[in-house]
Structure formats: C-alpha cells, structure tokens
C-alpha cells in the first residue's frame, strides 16, 4: 500500500516566514510526530495539507490523491483536531453533531454515540461550556465517527492536563491497531511522542531537518558527556554542544562514531526526543550545522 500522506518540495512564503521545500511521507498503520519549536512551520504545513493556505509550490498527496483536485473526497476521509476549538461555541454538542453528520458521507452515528459515552460528553451542553479537554474529546469524537483513515492533529495536547493527555494517547494507540489508518500529530510537547510515535519529523525555521523512524533516531543518536579538553577533536561530529564550567554535553547522530573518537573517556546516554529537538534547533548549539 502506498503512502497515506506524501509531501514533496512544499513551499510557502509569508512576509516574515518561509516554508522551504518540505518533503516527507507517512505510511498507513503509523503515527508520525511532527515536532519543532513554536513558529517552526508545523501549523503552516498542516494548514497547507488542509488547503486552509494556498501552497506556492510542491505537491501534497493524501491517499495517493492530489489534495486540491480531490479535496472533498480526501476530506471525507480525514479527521482533524486543532489546537484551538473550531466548532461553533453557541451550538450544543448534539446540534454541532447534527451539522457535521450531514456533511460527511460516511457518518457512523453508532460510533459517535459510543464516543460520547466513552468520553463522558454531555449532549445538551453548549460547546463553549465544555472544558478544553472536553472540546478536544469532542473534536476526536467527530474525527472517529466518520471512519477517518488519516487523523491530522495540530498540537492537540497543548493546554491539557496529564490525565486527559494520557487518555488521548491511549485512544490514538488503540486506533492505529488496524494498520490501515495513519496519524499525523504535531506537537512541541515531545514526551507525548515518546510513548506512541513510530516516526518523527523535525521541522525548524521552515525546513525539515529529518524524518525518521523514532527507534532508529533514538538508537543512532547519543548524548555524550565529558571534560572540555576532549572537544579538541570530534567537534565536527556533534549536532550541538553545550559547554559548562566542568565539561561539555553534546548530541551526536552516530553513537558508534562517538565511541570511536572518545572511547570510554565520555559518558554516553540515550537522548530523549526533547533533547534531540533542542540540540537540533538551538541557535547557539556550539557546533557546525549538521544539515
């Protein structure tokens, strides 16, 4: 089966920001974490996929179809959860459901009712009366009730308490079990992705720095700690370096290579996704740009 989401050389210019030839793909059955600092281009990329922004150049294919020529067909199979509520605040849960149910071709009322029960959503409450977590759950209920094959989520966990975040992650992990669906999940809270993501795509300043399987990323990268004097060689192998009074800490993308250079004179640790993101995107990372 081909990619569920494929982006090639996607570009978009604004007066103060430019998305530069973004390319990556997501296969069905996987969760891709789309990470990067605020303002890196995550929401812009998602808006371009959803055709809320018009691309300047490049190609976006969803389910193998051009996202503009087959827009309605594609959107019938996409579920979306945005960082902020986009449902009509004055409508009740039930009224809002009635509206969207009439728009999706494959609306499954039974699935929606099951979601309401599972998420404990009150049907008669107005959207504006729901907490942030409940609003996110409502978005998710809508996304799960029209048999979406691709879930696009833009910072869905921002502002949520740990319990709701954990519930969301469990639901996503469950959803992906049938290996037909894909989830594209943008966030700057990388701890969410430690648990569920299969692939990580890092964007910074409008440019993709890497798009790799999470396990490969964590296995090949290493956090190296040692005395400052060791930096006389090997600096060029570091993605980023932090120097302090007693020594240095650096991220390398070749664990074996680092051991070859410094041997057992350095401590080598497995980095977290957050540390990887920070070292790649820090402006004063003390190393030659790796990419």
């Amino acid at each position: 089966m081909g990619a569920i989401l494929e982006i090639k050389n996607l570009s978009k210019s604004f007066p103060n920001f430019r998305l530069k030839e973004v390319s990556f793909f997501l296969n069905p059955g996987y969760i891709m974490g789309f990470i990067g600092p605020n303002g890196a281009g995550k929401s812009t990329t998602i808006k371009l996929i959803m055709n809320l922004l018009r691309k300047d150049a490049g190609e976006i294919k969803v389910f193998g179809l051009d996202h503009l020529r087959h827009e309605k067909e594609i959107k019938n199979r996409i579920g979306f959860v945005y960082d902020e509520n986009c449902f009509y605040e004055e409508l009740t849960v039930s009224e809002m459901k009635n509206m969207v149910a009439g728009i999706y071709k494959t609306w499954d009322e039974g699935a929606f009712q099951r979601c309401l029960k599972k998420f404990d959503l009150p049907t008669n409450a107005k959207i504006k009366e729901l907490s942030r977590g409940m609003k996110m759950k409502f978005s998710l209920a809508v996304a799960l009730s029209h048999r979406a094959d691709l879930l696009i989520m833009d910072e869905p966990t921002s502002g949520l308490d740990p319990l709701v975040r954990s519930e969301l992650l469990e639901i996503l992990a469950e959803l992906i079990q049938d290996e037909q669906k894909g989830i594209f999940f943008s966030t700057h809270v990388t701890s969410d992705l430690d648990k569920i993501a299969d692939y990580i795509t890092l964007i910074n300043d409008g440019r993709i720095l890497f798009s790799k399987p999470k396990d490969e990323l964590l296995e090949t990268h290493a956090l190296v700690k040692g005395g400052k004097e060791l930096l006389s060689k090997g600096r060029e192998n570091c993605i980023g370096i932090r120097e302090h009074r007693y020594g240095f800490e650096a991220l390398v993308d070749n664990r074996a290579g680092a051991l070859k250079i410094w041997g057992d004179r350095v401590a080598v640790e497995r980095p977290t996704l957050e540390e990887i993101m920070l070292y790649y995107t820090r402006r004063d990372n003390g190393a030659q740009p790796a990419l």
Partner: peptide
C-alpha cells in the same frame, strides 16, 4: 459576525465542503 467569532471558516474549510 457569528461565523467570524467562531472561526467558522477554519471548520467549514476542513470539512468535505466546497
């Protein structure tokens, strides 16, 4: 005004609507 207040354009253009 209600459409703008609710960011309705984001929702409507994310749904399968032309």
């Amino acid at each position: 005004a209600c459409e703008e207040k609710n960011r309705g354009d984001i929702l409507l253009n994310s749904l399968p609507l032309s």
